[in-house]
Deep mutational scan, measured.
Amino acid sequence: SIEEEIKKAEEAKEKGKTFIHGDFVATTEELLDELLKRLRKKL
């Protein structure tokens, strides 16, 4: 679910890890923020 993806992305951000969502690879905090923004729009 979208909620689960958001939670996983937030955890990755806290730990400074890379998060992959489909073909979107978030390797930096900026990219994770962008991904979180996109996911929240889908809610």
Rank of each mutant, 00 (worst) to 15 (best):
F19T: 03
L31R: 01
G22I: 13
T18M: 10
G22C: 15
T27R: 08
R38I: 15
D23I: 14
R40C: 15
E10D: 03
E11Y: 11
L32R: 00
K17S: 10
K41R: 08
I6V: 03
A12L: 04
R38H: 15
K13G: 02
E5T: 15
A9V: 14
L36T: 00
E5Q: 14
L31V: 03
G16H: 06
V25F: 12
I20P: 02
K37Q: 11
F24T: 08
K17M: 14
E4F: 06
I20A: 09
R38K: 08
G16K: 11
I2K: 03
E29V: 14
D33Y: 08
S1D: 11
L43H: 09
S1Y: 13
I20F: 08
L39T: 00
G22T: 03
F24K: 00
K17W: 15
R40K: 09
G16R: 04
L43R: 05
K7G: 06
K42L: 15
K7C: 09
E5A: 15
I6F: 01
K41H: 10
E11T: 06
E14H: 10
L43F: 08
K42H: 12
E4H: 07
T28I: 10
L43D: 01
E14L: 14
L32E: 00
E5G: 04
L31M: 14
D33T: 06
I6P: 01
S1E: 10
K8E: 05
K41D: 15
L36V: 05
F24E: 04
K42E: 14
F19E: 02
E10F: 07
L43V: 02
T28V: 11
K13Y: 10
E10A: 03
K7I: 09
A12G: 02
A26Y: 13
F19Q: 03
F24G: 04
D23M: 11
K8G: 08
E29L: 15
S1L: 10
I6W: 02
E29Q: 13
T18I: 13
R38C: 15
G16F: 09
E3I: 13
E11L: 09
L31S: 05
K8D: 03
K7W: 06
L36I: 14
I20K: 06
D33H: 06
K37A: 13
E3H: 10
S1W: 15
I6M: 03
K7V: 06
E4T: 05
V25G: 04
G22L: 12
R40T: 09
L36M: 02
E4G: 05
E3F: 11
A9W: 07
K15A: 13
E11Q: 07
L31K: 04
L39G: 00
G16A: 03
A9Y: 03
K15E: 08
K8F: 04
A9S: 01
G16I: 06
K42N: 06
A26W: 10
E3T: 09
F19P: 01
L39V: 01
K13S: 03
V25Y: 09
L35H: 01
A26P: 05
E11A: 08
R38F: 15
